[in-house]
Design a binder for these strands. Sequence first.
DNA 1: TTGTGTGAAAGTTTTCACAGCT
DNA 2: AGCTGTGAAAACTTTCACACAA
Lengths: 229, 229
Amino acid sequence: MPPDVQQVPAATVARLPLYLRCLEELEQTKVETVSSSRLAELAGVNAAKLRKDLSHLGSYGTRGVGYQVAHLMRSIRFELGLDEQSPVIVIGLGNLGQALVNHAGFGDRGFPIVAVFDIDPNKIGRRVEGVDTAVEHLDNLETVVAAHEARTAIITTPVGAAQSATDRVVAAGITSVLNFAPTVVQVPEGVALRQVDLALELQILSYYQPRPETSPEHGARDENLRAAR
Amino acid sequence: MPPDVQQVPAATVARLPLYLRCLEELEQTKVETVSSSRLAELAGVNAAKLRKDLSHLGSYGTRGVGYQVAHLMRSIRFELGLDEQSPVIVIGLGNLGQALVNHAGFGDRGFPIVAVFDIDPNKIGRRVEGVDTAVEHLDNLETVVAAHEARTAIITTPVGAAQSATDRVVAAGITSVLNFAPTVVQVPEGVALRQVDLALELQILSYYQPRPETSPEHGARDENLRAAR
DNA sequence: TTGTGTGAAAGTTTTCACAGCT
DNA sequence: AGCTGTGAAAACTTTCACACAA
């Protein structure tokens, strides 16, 4: 790995979108200024941590007052590269793919779903709510990605197809991959990857369940948001 | 916080389910023994990290040989408290709720969905694939939770309803909450919580997109699974 | 000879506590 | 008087590198 001038620590990057979401809530209620302690409370984090996170933006709060909601939102959006819409493609129209596509939350937050791919002939050509174009065959991937200049792909294929689907979207020019298939996929250097496995979240929670028999002491604790995710 | 004998570090707990998933894949291919380096490769982590993680289980690998797949699976399941099925309820039958309920992945991994709740009269009584009982009104929550001895709830309500839904399931006896509503919910001490916001994942990825204009250097890196989630 | 288990070092993240701006 | 920005300490996590068991 190169010298790698890491501007903003990974743990901070993973929290910035959370702060942004809280700020959006505040803006909707016409709040113009917010203190670190109030925002931290909304985000469920410690106030010092929040201030340190924001300090990486070179962000200007005002001592004795707090942060300008609108200004802070702009700073975070800029830092994350959320200034413009970022078209997304979805590979695999199973249950989860279907739900993600219908889910308005992506488009509303700057990630419009511009195309959905599958290989099942029964699904090709089907119209899906929330997407302008019909379901495409995976063979059209390269053309469609190029046409929309999409850079981000969501993988919701079955496990067995996830790696090949990933390889293929990467070859087509995708540089960010969000994998929901419950298997680890590999991507080359230069491609960003996050993996979410829903059942895995439940298994993690399971550890923190109060349990009688087990050794000295488990016992529920909090502090499990998405630690650094 | 009390002295709190933390058996296993949080970062390790968050990875154990991942190892378990990899081991399940190995078992299906009749592999009986695996080395730390091979398993680490499958899980996408560093081998030393994996060994240290497993050392917290007091788990016995065999030097010069590796780990017994079957034995290691048992150890991890025991540590996480996955020995028995853990019934789950889902609150909110929107797009995402629907998808999660249909999704076979939960039941297969020991988390059968035993009931789904909503408050929309049009949804109450509807049958949903993957669940034995019809959609219930939220008013029946307490009775149903008690009947199934459910301890885990998945929240997929709209933002505005998430906190009250959470308060209510906790009052009904739920001790693990997985929140998909894009808002922070609070839970009392003793209740375990994880929050997943799908759009937020895309925003995090956005930071790691190669971008031209921006300051000294961003540039995509890997290492973003769910870092200590 | 192979590959685990683990001290010790390095790196990252969180938290504290307070100087200093408004 | 209030609240940010930040050094410094503490806590946690990762990685290294090697003794040692099979």
